[in-house]
Write a protein that binds this DNA or RNA. Structure first.
Length: 500
RNA sequence: GGGCCGUUAGCUCAACCAGGCAGAGCACCUGACUCUUAAUCAGUAGGUUGAAGGUGCGAUUCCGUCACGGCCCA
């Protein structure tokens, strides 16, 4: 909405701020010492309510005013700090005439410092009886309505701070997000994994099939890519002797946005030497069980109307058997390339010239099976063509020792025994390079330096990536990834986008 | 990229189908009020209806275009 004049509401709030300033009230002081949080007061009320009176002990507490009920010479205010919400009673005969006069100019949204004891109101609510009320920060922008809050999704995402002020549920989601990452970190640290950081800017973007963002380094005079995955660097660390490493950090993929995709997203990747993909499936089960119970208090989680059970042993099945039993695709069809491609076309899959059977089979799986995998399910037996970094199966060299984990119809994790044969790795990269030359923008780049690293020898290793945003969605019952990312990317609105 | 829906006061929403002075609640402002909690009572004020066009005597309403967003599909 283009508007050149400030609304009357804002003007009035600014006037109040000016009139306080004219009375020599500091609008932005920083000398109020907080002695207690709201939670501290509540704890004290729980533990020793008999010892608390309206005179002693005195709590010095601060927060943002969320509601004011004024009664002429007294007022109730509701205020919040990081630990919760509490009520204070401000009486003129208690705080003094001058202070009460200034208090009349306080608005919803202002920060206040309060000092006083506690008492119980007629309706039985514990309330802080203020001896002192001080302005800690004047707010000139009006907050949304207290009852309905802020609902407009566009404004919620663009101005997340208002969303956080008004909608406590949003705050809870992000607290849970933090707890999930902490729990994952603790889980891995307990198992002797080392947390590391590897380049976000890479000369060759590797480790995934995705289109990268490109940037330029002036001093080095080279283009760099924002990483699409940390994989090849983490494996270089395994080669260097760090047998167990993990990284929780951002990946960037230059793709569309949707309820399931944000151009930057958070991925956990971890690598364990002398382990197999089967070991990692076991580890993943334990990790998710641990995270689910730490964060939600239960191993049974409700997600968008489904009940997800993290307690039972996760199902395991191969890609082909899932296609047959869940997708209803007959094994004969998969063996016949022509019929397979025809069938895939009918199912709406875009068969390009470069399509390889393994790719088509995987796409068919995405369409026919993935949405039906509600309970945690490991799918194994991925074709070698779609798994250029995975070790081949000893039984069948056409498939790899790889799994993906699906929960609630979403891909949550992808792990495999790592390919550590440099010659085979080189052949796989060459095949990818062919696909890239044929127009597949998502095919892997050749990375000679990585091949050389493998030639020094990487111990047998298994590695895995877990999409943290999707895991957070699952555990917070969020339908859109935008609900679990503080500042999801959107097109700029109003002013013209910045350009250098 | 395609389909459907949305954009009206600071916020949440009406009015649009079937064109005729753009309304309400909360918030704000004035007054009353020292136990409220979506406080109450009385009064006042607040609008370039996302943008620029078209049709009409008249457009928030009908038409096409654009911008941004939501959901679904690719």
């Amino acid at each position: 909405m283009a508007k050149d004049k400030t609304s009357e509401l804002i003007e009035k709030r600014k006037k109040k701020a000016n009139s306080l300033r004219d009375s020599h009230i500091d609008l932005f002081p920083n000398n109020f010492r907080v002695s207690h949080t709201i939670m501290d007061i509540r704890d004290a009320l729980k533990k020793e309510p008999d010892r608390l009176t309206e005179d002693t002990p005195v709590f010095a507490v601060a927060g943002r005013i969320m509601a004011i009920n004024r009664f002429g010479k007294a007022a109730f205010i509701r205020f919040t700090d990081r630990t919760g919400q509490f009520q204070a009673y401000v009486r003129r005969d208690r705080v003094g005439d001058e202070s009460f006069g200034f208090f009349k100019l306080f608005d919803i949204g202002d920060f206040v410092g309060l000092k006083g004891g506690v008492f119980k109101t007629k309706t039985g609510e514990w309330t802080l009886l203020a001896n002192e009320v001080r302005l800690l920060c004047k707010s000139t922008m009006p907050l949304p309505e207290k009852f309905h809050g802020l609902k407009d999704p566009e404004k919620r995402y663009r101005k997340r701070y208002i969303d956080l002020i008004m909608n406590p549920g949003v705050r809870d989601i992000f607290i849970k997000r933090s707890l999930i990452i902490q729990t994952v970190r603790r889980f891995l640290l307990e198992r002797d994994f080392l947390e590391v950081e590897t380049p976000m800017m890479q000369p060759i973007p590797g480790g995934a099939e995705a289109e990268p963002f490109i940037t330029h380094h002036n001093a080095l005079g080279i283009d760099l890519y924002l990483r699409i995955a940390p994989e090849l660097y983490l494996k270089r660390l395994v080669i260097g002797g760090f047998e167990r490493v993990f990284e929780v950090n951002r990946n960037f993929r230059n793709e569309g946005v949707s309820t399931q995709h944000n151009p930057e997203f958070t991925m956990l990747e971890f690598y364990q030497a002398y382990a197999t993909y089967e070991d990692l499936m076991d580890l993943t089960e334990q990790m998710l069980r641990d995270v689910a119970s730490s964060v939600t208090g239960s191993v049974i989680v409700n997600y968008q109307g489904s009940t997800i059970n993290f307690d039972k042993k996760f199902k395991r099945m191969t890609l082909l058997s899932a296609l047959e039993t869940i997708g209803g695709v007959k094994p004969e069809l998969i063996k016949n390339k022509e019929k397979l491609f025809e069938f895939a076309s009918v199912k709406g899959i875009n068969i390009t010239k470069i399509a390889r059977p393994g790719k088509v089979i995987t796409k068919l799986f995405d369409v026919l099976v993935e949405p039906h995998l509600i309970q945690p399910t490991f799918i194994t037996g991925y074709p070698v063509e779609v798994s250029p970094l995975s070790r081949r199966s000893d039984e069948d060299p056409a498939v790899t020792e790889r799994f993906e984990l699906f929960i609630a119809g979403k891909e949550i994790a992808n792990g495999f025994s790592e390919l550590n044969d440099p010659q085979d790795q080189k052949r796989r990269f060459l095949q990818q390079a062919e696909d890239r030359a044929a127009g597949d923008k998502e095919a892997h780049f050749m990375d000679e330096d990585y091949i050389e690293a493998l030639e020094y020898g990487m111990p047998p290793t298994a590695g895995e990536g877990i999409g943290i945003d999707r895991l957070v969605m699952l555990l917070t019952d969020a339908a859109s990834i935008r609900e679990v990312i503080f500042f999801p990317h959107m097109k700029p609105k109003g002013s013209k986008p910045f350009s250098a």
